[in-house]
Write a protein that binds this DNA or RNA. Structure first.
Lengths: 227, 227
DNA sequence: ATTATTTTTTAAAATAAAGTAAAAAACTGA
DNA sequence: TCAGTTTTTTACTTTATTTTAAAAAATAAT
């Protein structure tokens, strides 16, 4: 369940919009003044904050700064004024989005969803990687090239997985060894090379001139996204 | 360096705003029609996309969906009318932010920064050195000049790394030797000279008249910040 | 301007790293 | 167990990089 902290001194707004939020099946906690926001923020666990700029006691800008010092929670700022200077200040102090009043409930909902989606993207683990015409599905334990399923061995799969989750970065043979053996067990230098050779034979158009798995001499191997 | 793909069919807008983006030291790639966006997206590596909804060939909504199938890159949609935002939302196409035209450049910049900040939180920190048109990425183990990847050898990379992390300071041959051999193994003085020569051939516009790696006679080499 | 010193360039030799094929070893599942 | 598959090792080839050496060029000093 998504838990939203809604801070605005205008009770008409908090009432109507929190009803709207609830109808979209969000949990809502309303705070109508500036001073008790931080306190409330610390008390419960929230997924997102909607913060009016004009508040009695403490401004939304101050509150935003204070929260940013202790948390990365998504923050949407609300303001009655349409002057862009407010927007910029709001965004520059670390808010994630800005909506001017009067706002359309649907737009605010949309922005909430977009922000939550982005924030949670990075929490859940990725299970599908696409890399050029290569598609790797961890859940299915499958790799496709141009929609055709390839049959990779366990080690080949593990190596490709390691490379594809670190695109554009060199992965040393040591790290690749760890990935296939599970531990720092010593295996010969050419072991990884041989796996790479077999992997290239399966995924490269021309294994003699590999374009997907590049060798970085003296360092390791790298999956090159783009030039 | 942040790399932005800007898609809009209105050349007046792409021209003026991409100039604005460049002044904020973003890299910008402009595409003026809908059909070649995906192609471009696959070709280079971008950090964020600004996508107009009304495009000839293919709508921004279609493009957004297609990109979402293969990537989590932050997307900002541009709409001519505010009502269109509802449409985007209703379709839940996966954009991260929405800005309606005409937009204020400062606001769009602010939104770009807010989105990048949130997106990059979750990417690992980058160890990147920028020096004029040279960009060195330690994690990727790559060096770019004017955004083209150069292929440096291990020693060349080590030398450039040492120089770039001590800009405006003379680095002796001895220290450079240590950097490439790991230890105080004795190698010829001329070895470093040769590496420097090869390095200059790769990174200098005119290797005969080096402006990046300067010789300090009798002492060593220096990376000059000022010309 | 001449000489001594240092750096750059060139090219060849030495070394190091990566690629390959084939055989041995280790698994796996009927 | 044993046949098939995968992984690891070995020995060898190929390729790339580093080092050396020596000549040419550039710089500094007298």
């Amino acid at each position: 369940m998504v838990n939203i902290l809604f801070v605005d001194d205008d009770i008409a707004i908090t009432d109507s919009f929190s009803a709207y939020l609830k109808s979209e099946s969000f949990y809502v906690t309303v705070v109508n003044d500036g001073v008790s926001v931080i306190e409330m923020f610390k008390k419960k666990e929230f997924d997102l904050i909607i913060l009016d700029i004009m508040l009695p006691g403490k401004t939304g800008i101050e509150i935003c700064k204070e929260i940013r010092d202790i948390s990365d929670i998504p923050i949407i700022m609300l303001t009655a004024k349409t002057e862009e200077i407010d927007k910029i200040v709001g965004l520059e102090i670390g808010a994630d989005d800005y909506v001017s009043k009067p706002f359309s409930p649907r737009e605010l909902i949309a922005r909430i969803k977009a922000l939550l989606r982005r924030a949670s993207k990075f929490n859940e683990e990725k299970s599908i990687y696409v890399f050029g015409d290569i598609e790797m599905n961890l859940k299915q334990y499958s790799v496709k090239k141009n929609r055709r399923t390839l049959s990779l061995t366990k080690s080949e799969f593990a190596i490709l997985h390691k490379l594809i989750e670190n695109p554009d970065q060199v992965v040393t043979r040591e790290k690749l060894m760890k990935v296939i053996t599970g531990f720092d067990k010593y295996i010969f230098d050419r072991t990884i090379d041989t796996h790479i050779k077999n992997l290239r034979k399966k995924i490269e158009d021309n294994p003699k001139k590999p374009v997907i798995i590049k060798t970085v001499r003296g360092v390791g191997y790298r999956l090159n996204k783009k030039i």
